[in-house]
Design a binder for these strands. Structure first.
Lengths: 143, 143
DNA sequence: TCTTATTCCTACTATACTCGTAGGAAAGTA
DNA sequence: TACTTTCCTACGAGTATAGTAGGAATAAGA
């Protein structure tokens, strides 16, 4: 029941970008160095964020990435849903899944729905801006 | 971020046992038939529950399993923690994990702690007895 | 005692997923 | 043109999930 590195790194990347935001672009190389994540692996994560309109990329010299929205407008739920595919704890509650044939008789469905809801409510209540307020002083992260 | 079949099945098994509780024992075969889960796979799940004192096994003819506690006293959190190893969403918050060197500087740690807490609070608030009250009329489950 | 039913235990396997790596094409700047 | 940067496709090692297989130990009953 662990969040994968993709989800965890995506949050770190976005916090990093928000903290080092300037008029121009931020390159993958910068982020990779600060966050100590392989540039190539970062690439695959950022690509997902580009595809979903969270960040925008600009190619060529002087290029890089920038946030498409302010950190206040990016929730953890949105980011994690993009990277993990879904925040649902069981397959039958993933977005787009076919409704279960026996849902009406299922003794556990209500429990899983409740779990999904508390996770979703919490993650929607927390933004990149909120995370910038927490923790210490540097660019140091572990998880 | 999915709960594995072990965790999901364990809840179904315990609900099944609670609903079909008698003076004697319930055999794996019965549960396997009602729940439509392979007897062999059930075995590996129930063994974990025996080891942790949730159910007790009795060998030989007329043997089987029975709950060691009333359904009101078995929480989802306890069962899922046994089967999944932990309910923590990130490795650095799993029980017994070494505290992270840079925890003080981490921008995301507070978020993960909060997520762990809402999951844990919710799962501790729900018991096997609660789940018996929900859903429909039969022994039918899917997830 | 012999048979049968049941849990208990160890080992194995196929598949999928996670966590990356590698190489190069496309596009933009100077 | 030269350089930098994103974009795209493919591959690979390691690990976890979801089981399966076979048999030993134990208990009840004929």
């Amino acid at each position: 029941m662990l969040i994968s590195t993709k989800g965890r790194y995506a949050l770190r990347i976005l916090i990093d970008m928000a903290e080092h935001q300037t008029a121009g672009c931020i390159t993958l190389q910068e982020i990779a160095q600060r966050q100590d994540i392989s540039e190539k692996y970062l690439e695959s994560i950022v690509r997902e964020l580009v595809k979903k309109g969270i960040v925008a990329g600009q190619r060529g010299k002087g290029g890089g990435y920038r946030l498409c929205r302010s950190p206040e407008q990016i929730t953890a739920a949105e980011v994690l849903r993009i990277m993990e595919g879904s925040l649902a704890p069981v397959a039958c509650l993933t977005e787009g899944a076919a409704p279960c044939r026996k849902a009406a008789q299922c003794r556990t469905l209500d429990f899983w729905r409740g779990l999904r809801d508390v996770i979703d409510d919490y993650a929607r209540s927390c933004t990149i801006a909120d995370m910038m307020q927490t923790g210490g002083d540097g660019d140091d992260y572990i998880i």
